[in-house]
């Protein structure tokens, strides 16, 4: 299998779907001549022209509304919102329109849109450019929220999202674009709403999505050195939520930590923890724990930014403590 970056995998998925279906088109700010803020769409305007790679003004509501309206008439728009922080400006179109259209019109309409957007803290981007807001959208029935962690998943899930008939928020991550991984050749499509066990283990389940999966895998490596076998479940999708895969793992390990960027209270971890206790209460040997970002706006100074984000060491320490093999002392 060829190795490529997360960025390249997304680029290839867009290009292949545009080649396959003439109704697929892209829209967003700076996605054409500029090549995209994170360069995912670079070169596509040369291949497909300005009609299929539509450059927009800085109008997030207009972008999402345009995508939704076009999708209602048979097109398959893929919109890029430069970062998830800006989606708040267009939230009305996504939550009040796209997510409601199939239901409130009694199945007479559908809104097959994909909104791609990067989430997460980057390099000292401070309070207004570092947020993790995808759980807001996962809260909304009518939406799908997909969040891949690897290049292979990014490609397979983006292609599946473009072919799906539901409104989808496709969450990328600013720190993953240069992440490399193997991607299957040929037609690679993954089912939406299916979690993936990224590493098998026996003692504790680490549940994560997007960039936090890589932190969980690093923690699992460190735990292995202490003789602890951690299983890593990558949700890949916040809605639909594949709780079955999570619960199956917890039944085996009897311990669980949910790990994610973003805030703790009312965050994705709260939902996962609740689902685990609903479905596997008797299998738990310890309360489900959450390791998340601190509940502050992201600060600028490197010392403070580091302190606000979840760390691999935190996961290792809590896992060891939970399993009673804590040699460090807490």
């Amino acid at each position: 299998m060829p190795e490529m970056t997360y960025r390249q995998a997304l680029h290839d998925a867009l290009r292949e779907e545009m080649q396959r279906d003439p109704n697929v088109f892209l829209l967003g700010e700076e996605i054409g001549i500029f090549g995209g803020s994170y360069k995912v769409t670079e070169g596509l305007i040369d291949e497909f022209g300005p009609q299929r790679v539509l450059e927009t003004p800085i109008s997030e509501g207009g972008i999402i509304g345009l995508a939704t309206g076009a999708s209602m008439t048979g097109l398959r728009p893929v919109a890029e919102i430069m970062t998830i922080n800006f989606i708040v400006v267009g939230m009305d179109q996504l939550v009040n329109n796209a997510a409601k259209i199939p239901y409130m019109f009694g199945g007479e309409a559908k809104a097959p849109i994909v909104i791609r957007t990067p989430s997460g803290a980057g390099h000292q981007l401070a309070s207004q450019h570092s947020q993790v807001l995808e759980s807001w959208f996962a809260y909304v029935p009518g939406m799908y929220v997909i969040a891949p962690s690897t290049p292979a998943d990014a490609k397979g899930l983006l292609k599946a999202s473009i072919r799906d008939d539901n409104p989808i928020l496709f969450v990328e991550n600013v720190l993953l674009y240069n992440e490399k991984g193997e991607v299957p050749e040929g037609e690679h499509i993954l089912p939406l709403g299916k979690a993936d066990v990224k590493r098998e283990g026996e003692d504790i389940t680490l549940i994560a999505y997007s960039r936090a999966v890589h932190m969980a895998l690093a923690a699992a490596d460190a735990l292995a050195e202490q003789g602890i076998s951690a299983e890593v479940v990558d949700l890949r999708s916040l809605r639909p939520l594949d709780i079955e895969t999570v619960v199956s793992s917890v039944r085996k390990t009897n311990h669980a930590i949910v790990l994610h960027e973003g805030w703790k209270r009312y965050g994705a971890g709260a939902e996962i923890a609740a689902e685990i206790q609903e479905h596997a209460f008797d299998d738990l040997d310890h309360p489900v724990e959450r390791i998340t970002g601190a509940e502050v706006p992201l600060p600028y100074a490197t010392s403070l930014e580091r302190a606000a984000l979840p760390r691999v060491e935190d996961v290792v320490m809590r896992a060891a403590f939970i399993l009673g093999r804590d040699k460090v002392g807490v």
Partner: peptide, 25 residues
């Protein structure tokens, strides 16, 4: 008739997409 919408002005951006679809096709 692509619907009645309840958020004041919220229906307006949809028309950009319907019009763009016409041009696209």
């Amino acid at each position: 008739f692509l619907g009645g919408y309840g958020i004041v002005a919220g229906q307006m951006p949809l028309a950009i997409g319907v019009g763009y679809s016409t041009k696209y096709r």
